[in-house]
Design a protein around this nucleic acid. Sequence first.
DNA 1: ACATTAAGTGATT
DNA 2: AATCACTTAATGT
Length: 211
Amino acid sequence: MILRKALQENFPIISEPELIEEIMKVAYIHEMDEDDILIDINENIKNLPLLVEGSVKILREDENGNEVFLYYVDAGNTCAATLTCCMDSKRSNIRAIVEEKAVFLTIPYQYMDIWMGKYKSWREFILTTYSLRFEELLKAVDQLAFKKMDQRILNFLNEKSNLLNSKIIKISHQQIAYDLNTSREVVSRILKQMERENLVKINRGQLELLE
DNA sequence: ACATTAAGTGATT
DNA sequence: AATCACTTAATGT
């Protein structure tokens, strides 16, 4: 089936045939469009999503509704923050917004625990995901704590460019400001400066990264 | 042509 | 680096 193929191609680490059979039995396939909210803050997590296509933006929010971008999750991955919640069916502490039209498998949370004991490759998958996402998180912390806004913007654009496989990024200054939790004017000024340094080309609602 | 939305800018804190 | 107030430019209807 298509489902089985998607799983094997994107999650080769999950290798045990019996485990794959079990996943086939209990997983559902879902599809979401750009800007759809896959997981919201405080949402009760009852399923673990495994991304097989597209990408998702993970962000954190403070009590005033200020958002900060944390990292992207793309095909073949899942979000560690969600994993944590799934393990004992807690509420989500992050928000996940679809960046590029996403297709994913969802696995009911009850199986997380059972499979941990039963399948070696599942255990490996979970542990690898944890360490991978932890690294991502550290990178995000470094950015927030130690980098100036111009570097944060440049970094943000580079990550996005990598993810989309394109030097052209369709985004408004305002949206960047939301993601980095700063003001639109600051973004505009920094981008203008970057344009003078020939790092980017600015067009309305769109940026092009230059070499 | 007009309204709407994105981007640029100077002044102030 | 943030906020305000205002201008200018691009785009949609």
